[in-house]
Write a protein that binds this DNA or RNA. Sequence first.
DNA 1: TATACTGCGGAAATGGGGTG
DNA 2: CACCCCATTTCCGCAGTATA
Length: 301
Amino acid sequence: MPKQRYIERYNAIVEKVRKGRCTLKEICEYLSIKSEDRDLNLTISSRTFNRDLDEIRDIYGIDIQYDRTQKVYYIANDQVANISNVRLMEAFDIFNTLKMSEHFSDFILFEERKPHGTQHFYPLLQAIKSKQKIKIVYRKFSEDENTERILLPFALKESKGRWYLLATKINDTKLKTYGLDRIISLKVLQDFFYSDFKINIKEKFKHSFGIISVDEGDPETVELSFTRKQGEYIKTYPLHESQQVVFENNEEIRVKLLIYVTYDFIMELLSFGSEMKVISPADLQEEIQESLEEALKNYTA
DNA sequence: TATACTGCGGAAATGGGGTG
DNA sequence: CACCCCATTTCCGCAGTATA
């Protein structure tokens, strides 16, 4: 897979242009410096450079434009593009590092987090971009047998260090999530689809915690009280994008979320143990309480 | 008019699969 | 496992086009 070289190049170009406006010459110089650093050859002709700009626009959504009057390249839509794209680039970087690691495996020891499924990352991205159907062999979380299915891919989503494919089955409008690490094999079909129903992925997941998508009901306002120590941590790594600090003193930090109360969210809450208390809503409070009491029974009985 | 962009053909590199 | 063949990917350079 010779993908890794040009993805590094994309990253290097974006890195450079992000730092400030620059001329083509400066970008080329930057690329040759990078080449020496990484012992690669990233230098390219202007033709390839232009193709790269198209690709970067396509994949990252970063629009690099040329300003004729000043003869410089710059990022046109940086304010919108920023966060999610940096994230995406990080993902690509990790993906590449993992790829590269095969060469260095004796010298660099990666955390054994099982990056299974990342090999499907790029083909999936291609399929999503060009709206091609895919055929996958999938091993369900709960079952042992593998099933084959044809899907219409829509998006990739990251949650807790894992990647998921959001896709629908044929003749079905319900969006499902598939863990990339549970996709045994993947084939991109030469069969294109037209999505006649609009799925607004971002909107759909705006109020969900992880990867469980909710089709019915409304998100709820959840208020949580953390101990000072845990609260500081939560402030730096918010549970959810809607998280707001409503109150804090020396003992506790309270935050508010607007979120679908799903199974995985509850599990997350339980993992805080005594460091966290649910303030509202009442039924969630009860549920957590019951779970903890159940857990306690395992030791007192 | 100078500079940047684009389309296209072909060369080189890469990877998969088959064969002995 | 080494080797070769073929398909695909990636890239370059040319030549023509667009833009200020």
